[in-house]
């Protein structure tokens, strides 16, 4: 009996352990999402000389939970003309995709759930699939505002993915590996934001478009589309979209941090800086980028649709394409091409 229990435990323990690790990532992430919405309201209110949420709890700190409870208790309305299955699947897919990408993000040296060889491609693939949640929601709602919003979103995300891909390639040429931990460790001496500054700027702006954030939030342009693809959603189905969007913002900031800001590495490898553990540096850098996300929302008006497309296809694409050539040309000319471990 004891033996049987022991073998069962040995078989089950890896599964339990991985579930614990997943919870250790997802729970702090969801809390971070909740407080990102709070931070957004507070920062924007400070920029607009208002107080922002300050009633629920001290300094309004419990506001995100009050919002969550409110959304949880509301009625889920499914429009009668909607395609039921797809309508319900869309928010779940959005939320699921925004969480599943975190599996490969390294929070510190060796602190990663799945240290796969093609980590950056995995992130790129998952972020590219995010468009399906929006497309499905827009189509299944059977409403013209939703549909227009989702069509805009699809075109926008596909366009900006192209230049993002080229920026990623120019980083990969410098690193010589697709593994995210390798990408961070390659920035030990110098963060890539210094030699590849234009790429970092293009990448960050593309992530704004990819997450449908201001100034590229055309899919939910309130003025003309009400709120675009999620007009027909209410209660928890809406909350899943909302959580997914904010988790995606954090994910994209994390991706920018890993690619350009040295991931979990301290800015200088000297005493006061390298005593602070890596995950804290990682979180600090992500918070800084998220602040820029919010700042941009307060500072810029929305782009017009043709301007958005022009920026993506006529400005970013040629620059990032040229950058791949220039970066690899410099690496070849100065004989600095990285040689991976298995190369002969």
């Amino acid at each position: 009996m004891v033996d049987f229990a022991l073998t069962l435990w040995e078989a089950l323990w890896p599964l339990i352990w991985i579930v614990i690790k997943i919870l250790a990532i997802v729970v702090p992430l969801l809390v971070a999402v909740a407080y990102l919405t709070y931070a957004e309201r507070k920062v924007i209110s400070a920029m607009q000389r208002r107080k922002g949420p300050n009633v629920v709890g001290p300094l309004g700190l419990l506001q995100p939970f009050a919002d969550g409870v409110k959304l949880f208790l509301k009625e889920t309305i499914i429009p009668s003309g909607a395609n039921r299955a797809v309508f319900l699947l869309a928010p779940m897919l959005t939320f699921f995709l925004s969480l599943v990408a975190w599996a490969v993000i390294p929070f510190g040296e060796g602190l990663v759930l799945a240290d796969i060889n093609v980590g950056i491609l995995y992130l790129f693939a998952i972020s590219g699939m995010g468009v399906y949640g929006i497309l499905m929601a827009g189509w299944a709602s059977n409403s013209k505002y939703s549909f227009l919003g989702s069509l805009r979103s699809a075109a926008q995300m596909v366009s900006y993915e192209v230049s993002m891909g080229f920026v990623i390639i120019s980083v990969l040429v410098v690193v010589g590996s697709l593994n995210l931990s390798d990408i961070v460790m390659a920035q030990k001496n110098m963060w890539f934001v210094i030699p590849l500054l234009p790429m970092a700027v293009i990448f960050f702006i593309s992530t704004l478009a990819e997450t449908n954030r201001h100034p590229f939030d055309l899919p939910e342009a309130e003025a003309e589309l009400v709120t675009g693809y999620n007009v027909e959603y209410s209660a928890m189905t809406f909350a899943l979209f909302f959580l997914g969007e904010y988790a995606n913002m954090i994910l994209m900031s994390g991706m920018t941090t890993i690619l350009f800001l040295g991931g979990w590495l301290p800015p200088f490898d000297v005493a006061p800086f390298n005593l602070i553990p890596g995950p804290i540096w990682f979180a600090l850098k992500i918070s800084m980028l998220l602040f820029v996300f919010i700042w941009l929302r307060a500072a810029f008006p929305r782009y017009r649709y043709d301007q958005l497309m022009r920026l993506g296809w006529k400005v970013f694409l040629p620059i990032s394409l040229a950058a791949v050539v220039v970066v690899s040309g410099v690496l070849v000319a100065f004989d600095m091409l990285p040689v991976a471990g298995g190369m002969r």
Binding site: V118, L121, A125, G165, L178
Partner: peptide, 26 residues
């Protein structure tokens, strides 16, 4: 073949099928 797997998702799921779905929906 993890590289091919990711390429399949990036190219077919992430780009080709999006445009396809786009057209079929309209």
């Amino acid at each position: 073949a993890e590289f091919l797997a990711m390429l399949l998702v990036v190219v077919y799921v992430g780009a080709v099928a999006v445009l396809f779905l786009f057209v079929v929906m309209m």
